[in-house]
Design a protein around this nucleic acid. Sequence first.
DNA 1: TATCTTTATTGTAATATCGCGTTACAATTT
DNA 2: AAATTGTAACGCGATATTACAATAAAGATA
Lengths: 108, 108
Amino acid sequence: MGLTKNHIFDDYQNETALITKVLGHPARVAIIQHISKNQYCNCNDLVNATGLAQPTVSQHLSEIKRIKLLKQKHQGKNTFYAIDQDILNQYRRKINDFFVKVQVNCQK
Amino acid sequence: MGLTKNHIFDDYQNETALITKVLGHPARVAIIQHISKNQYCNCNDLVNATGLAQPTVSQHLSEIKRIKLLKQKHQGKNTFYAIDQDILNQYRRKINDFFVKVQVNCQK
DNA sequence: TATCTTTATTGTAATATCGCGTTACAATTT
DNA sequence: AAATTGTAACGCGATATTACAATAAAGATA
């Protein structure tokens, strides 16, 4: 089948997986790092920074956008990307809470 | 190609991705949750808890084992699984640090 | 011994992902 | 207008992932 059965899991489990899945590729980790160090950089910067082809970077960008982690500014032919810090912080807490809850469960 | 170019990314990026990738599936999130609430449960418990077939659960378990997040005890025909809390805590800090570093970079 | 239970392995079909060449398109630049 | 630049979309080949039936293997039980 090859098709994840999302419907048999709850919202919390699906959302946790959705967020971590986006972080689950080194290119996307690298892209997020580079944008954070160069807020409002463009696609070409990321191509140079990662060494991946432009369509590949563009594809990874759209996966990161899917979870709303990026803000975009269009200026002429350029698109500038920045990290949405509110969302980032929200996800940081969510993922950390997941770990903490698991940890607490272990100790009961 | 369908082949991740790990060699063009650094150890930090690859390790961050490796950990989050394992969490990037709702079945594995569910399995980790269930083991944490039932330390030293067996595979059958997880089959019942998730609703997935036994080979599927076994496959997910081995992915979680790949990053050393599980401890196992063999007792006769049974295999009991538990969360390795040291590793869990290590990963919690690692992933949280990743988020924090990105956040700090944004604010420079 | 034969059977049942539990888990891992093998094999396979369906689907998703990764990476990139090509193309398309919009906004500049010449 | 023509060429250039930056980005997204399309399409494709290679590989990986998801899920499961069937089987194997190892221990327990009748």
